[in-house]
Design a protein around this nucleic acid. Structure first.
Length: 646
RNA sequence: GCCGACGUAGCUCAGGGGUAGAGCGUUUCCUUGGUAAGGAAGAGGUCACGGGUUCAAUUCCCGUCGUUGGCUCCA
């Protein structure tokens, strides 16, 4: 007998060789029907894996993340079998589960897969699924495993196996299909009731652009047809929150082929929104001791040679601008920091004057690869809410924490309560990617981790994600489709002060090297507005929205009173406008709803006689007839509840 | 940059080898209206651009540009 400990701490005894499924059956028939995967002594096992020792067992169903992963991973096997049957001779590579669904990377040889082929693949996959084939794991020696794939002529699998230890290699069989596999499957293919191929994309083998490009087939599957339908509906809903669509509808920004790809044009409403965001941050920054500076959009090439940006990015960036007579070389500025370093250098500082905090809404230009451009989230010209803090070594940690506070304040004021904090450090395998000496890197990495820990941030550490000059703390936010984007960023930098020979006079009357902190709570205005749009669906917080109210006179004879109401609203500092068109109230309300105005103010005979306004909230709530003063009270209360002072 | 898809009126989209359609918007006129579309008439398109095939191309083929889903990249 073996002793199995369940997650609730209860222990049960089973004969040696019993499976997780047996244990589930012991708990309830219902659980046994739903259990699709398990973890034993913290190792992923199949529901059918015989358990040979005492240990801790966790059973997973579709409602667990692990269960879903097992479900989707198993589905990728089914996808692979379907593809092999439809396109004999293809070479399979890897096929993992992802956050939503799974993919399989396949070398199709000459064949190009396109959307037209999806239906046939889905049909075949469901046919396989309906066969209720068991997934069976078996151990294979390295020699046999290599032999199997060499015979198949599949260099990808051979390469994978070569990197595995003998004795640690398993294959998974189901039906007529065999795949190299680490495990983590559902009991049989029959659980897959709904199967959809979502898209195809190119993907480089092992993520290396110098290696062959494979075809990645994305799919998703579910235990119930209804769940697939719901998932597809969810995708449709997410599309409605796409910032590119909302930006167009709300007339915030546009692009022009003539101006150039990746170069956003801000329309009046979008510019007003940006302006408001900038004012909001400027106010907080002023309190936090920042000083605004202004620098030009171009800088001598030499400036970036000094900073190290030219060596790192010069080749694949916008090329230098040459002046006609003297052949000077200028670059569009890709970063504000070199300029700010020169501002720091303009004045000699004593340690008593540090930290210096220079802030600028600085527009920068970067040559992003054309395939990378995406709405406002990835552009070639954008404005950073940039600042550089020059401080002593002793001040780094407290300054860093101050910046975390500011960033959290910014995110909180805008309703971003879900974010990931990511500490990006060096890639230990690739030291050549970075400049600066190791001791400083270690110091900087430690300072960031300390500050983040001190501030109680729940963060993940990502090796290899650091900037080339220093480690950073990034605040990542997901868009409507769940793709993660970096917004706020804080970076410690010991290198640029060195390169620009920045100094301050210490208490010992000697010159010392300051440390620099780069930071941008929004990240860029463009990306921030994009994510804000996707999060709010265009319904911005009241303090930020370009127009808080719209006055809708019932008929033309109420226009005069409406104008009076508008003036009164403006006197109460409510941003409002008047819709005096010769349209029915019904239409004006409909359009105001679609325009996402928070308050609709309807004025007709009644209101004119009483000196009141009739207020409808966006979404339909009727606040009845009230005075402008009362509305002003409501507006202020709501603003004060979301927008705390810093 | 690479792989796939897409590009028809201001917007959303239908169509298809014989030089184009809808809804919304816009313009004009009528209507003066009470909480999500009042009515009528009109204007508006080198079917992204450039080649090729064809008697004929917006439609088929190739290329370019742009957009897009991914990959790589992201100071």
């Amino acid at each position: 007998m073996i002793e199995i400990t369940l997650p609730d701490g209860k222990t049960v005894e089973y004969p040696k060789g019993s499976t997780p499924l047996d244990v589930a059956r012991g708990i309830s028939e219902g659980l046994a029907r739903n259990v699709i995967s398990a973890r034993f002594n913290n190792r992923k096992v199949e529901a059918s894996t015989p358990l040979e020792t005492d240990g801790k067992l966790i059973l997973y169903t579709w409602s667990d993340e692990e269960g879903k992963k097992a479900f989707w991973h198993s589905s990728s096997h089914v996808l692979a079998q379907a593809l092999e049957e439809l396109y004999p001779g293809i070479k399979l590579t890897i096929g993992p589960a992802i956050d939503s669904g799974f993919y399989y990377d396949v070398d199709f040889g000459e064949h190009t897969l396109s959307e037209k082929d999806f239906l046939a693949i889905e049909k075949k996959a469901l046919e396989i699924a309906r066969g209720k084939h068991d997934f069976r794991m078996r151990e294979v020696s390295k020699k046999d495993a290599l032999g199997y794939y060499e015979k198949e002529g599949n260099p990808y699998k051979v390469e994978l196996i070569e990197n595995l230890e003998d004795g640690d290699i398993t294959f998974c069989d189901h039906d007529t299909f065999t795949d190299l596999c680490r495990g983590g499957h559902i009991p049989n293919t029959g659980l897959i009731k709904a199967f959809k191929v979502l898209s195809v994309a190119g993907a480089y083998w092992r993520g290396d652009e110098n290696r062959p490009q494979l075809t990645r087939v994305y799919g998703i599957s579910f235990p119930k047809q209804k769940e697939l339908t719901e998932y597809l509906e969810m995708l449709e809903e997410a599309k409605k929150r796409d910032h590119r669509k909302l930006g167009k509808e709300l007339e915030l920004f546009t692009f022009s082929q003539k101006v150039g790809q990746g170069l956003p044009l801000w329309l009046p409403k979008g510019a007003a929104l940006r302006e408001r965001l900038e004012q909001f941050l400027k106010k907080a920054q002023k309190k936090a001791g920042y000083e605004m500076v202004v620098t030009p959009h171009i800088g001598q090439k030499e400036l970036y040679v000094t900073s190290g940006h030219y060596a790192k990015y010069g080749e694949d960036s916008f090329q230098p601008i040459h002046t006609p007579r003297e052949d000077e070389e200028f670059l569009l500025k890709p970063m504000n920091c070199p300029h700010h370093c020169e501002i720091y250098r303009a004045t000699p500082f004593s340690y008593r004057e540090l930290p210096k905090r220079y802030a600028e809404f600085g527009t920068v230009y970067r040559y992003e690869q054309s395939g990378e451009l995406h709405g406002l989230t990835r552009v070639r010209g954008f404005t950073q809410d940039d600042a550089h803090i020059f401080c002593t070594h002793d001040q780094v940690e407290s300054e860093f924490m101050n910046v975390i506070d500011l960033t959290l304040y910014v995110l909180g004021s805008l309703g971003f309560d879900k974010f990931t904090a990511q500490v990006s450090i060096r890639d230990p395998e690739n030291p050549d990617k970075y400049i600066g000496d190791t001791a400083n890197w270690e110091k900087a990495e430690a300072a960031i981790i300390n500050a983040a820990t001190e501030k109680g941030l729940d963060f993940v550490i990502e090796p290899g994600e650091a900037a080339f000059y220093g480690p950073k703390l990034d605040f990542m936010i997901k868009d409507a489709l769940g793709r993660q984007w970096q917004l706020g960023t804080i970076q410690v930098d010991y290198t640029l002060p060195e390169r620009f020979d920045l100094t301050y006079k210490g208490s010992d009357n000697e010159l010392h090297r300051p440390v620099m902190i780069h930071r941008a709570p929004f990240g860029s205005m463009e990306r921030f507005v994009a994510l804000l749009l996707e999060h709010t669906g265009g319904n911005f917080p009241l303090w930020l929205t370009p127009q808080q109210a719209i006055v809708l006179p019932v008929s033309e004879k109420h226009e005069k009173y409406a104008q009076k109401v508008l003036n009164s609203l403006e006197n109460h500092e409510i941003r409002a406008l008047l819709d005096a068109r010769s349209e029915t109230v019904g239409r004006k309300i409909r359009e105001a709803e679609m325009g996402k105005y928070p308050f609709m103010i309807i004025v007709g005979d009644q209101e004119q006689a009483d000196g009141t306004i009739s207020v409808r909230r966006h979404g339909g709530e009727d606040l009845g007839s009230i005075t402008v003063e009362a509305l002003s009270g409501l507006v202020n209360a709501e603003i004060n509840s979301t927008l705390k002072s810093f």
